[in-house]
């Protein structure tokens, strides 16, 4: 749903906090049924990835913010995972309506999709709850820190931003603004770094276009 003044006023940080504080740490039954509809059931790989990335995130968070903040990192990640499952379910519902299909095997078995979605959810939680208990040393985890920690290309993170905003109705205006700033930063610089997948895509689309039919005559 597009951003509206009413939505902005209605949605407060407390609303999302309440939702996340009461949400489950595990995929919902709805989400499980989407997994079961897949040609290749992605459940085990999804749970394994959440666990693996969790270990990396908590370790890097403690390294960056301070060993005294290990518990905070763990809490941030836990809420991020809850948001990740919530948004995934919402995305699948709207994709199901849009495409009239129920088998999302290829998408739900795509590591980049899940890593991008999880990174967005954790980024929103950190931006909302604050990046550390104390105000001073949380800056080290500002965006794009999460991309380095999850070894995720900025361009791949960029792909989920709009769908994430569409799928999560309880995002506040500030949270949406935060994702938008991340988006701009990616478009303006991060997506153009040398190892970006963007260059291969440009090359592929050039090859698909083929040579120009009638190159313009060179002007004298």
């Amino acid at each position: 749903p597009p951003q509206t003044p009413v939505r902005a006023v209605m949605n407060t940080i407390q609303q999302l906090m309440m939702i996340l504080n009461t949400a489950s740490d595990q995929p919902s039954e709805n989400l499980i049924s989407y997994f079961n509809n897949c040609t290749v059931n992605p459940k085990e790989s999804i749970l394994k990835r959440v666990e693996t990335i969790g270990c990396i995130f908590k370790e890097k968070f403690a390294e960056t913010v301070g060993q005294g903040c290990i518990e905070i990192g763990s809490q941030r990640y836990k809420l991020g995972v809850r948001l990740y499952y919530r948004v995934m379910e919402s995305m699948l519902k709207s994709e199901e309506e849009r495409l009239s299909i129920q088998n999302f095997s290829k998408l739900l078995n795509d590591n980049t999709f899940h890593t991008s979605l999880l990174a967005s959810a954790v980024e929103i939680v950190m931006a909302t709850y604050g990046r550390s208990g104390s105000q001073n040393n949380g800056a080290g985890t500002d965006f794009p820190w999460i991309l380095n920690v999850l070894d995720l290309k900025a361009f791949d993170f960029y792909k989920v931003i709009e769908s994430f905003i569409k799928a999560e109705a309880s995002l506040t205006r500030e949270m949406i603004k935060h994702l938008e700033r991340c988006e701009h930063r990616i478009m303006e610089s991060l997506a153009w770094q040398s190892d970006s997948p963007l260059f291969d895509l440009i090359k592929q689309s050039k090859e698909r276009e083929g040579p120009a039919d009638h190159p313009e005559p060179t002007s004298t």
Partner: peptide, 21 residues
């Protein structure tokens, strides 16, 4: 500040964006 600009076209969603269509 202006609202978020939704730029994806009708036929575009995460399935297409991640080449999973």
């Amino acid at each position: 500040a202006p609202d978020y600009h939704f730029g994806l076209e009708d036929g575009e969603g995460v399935r297409e964006l991640f080449d999973c269509d």
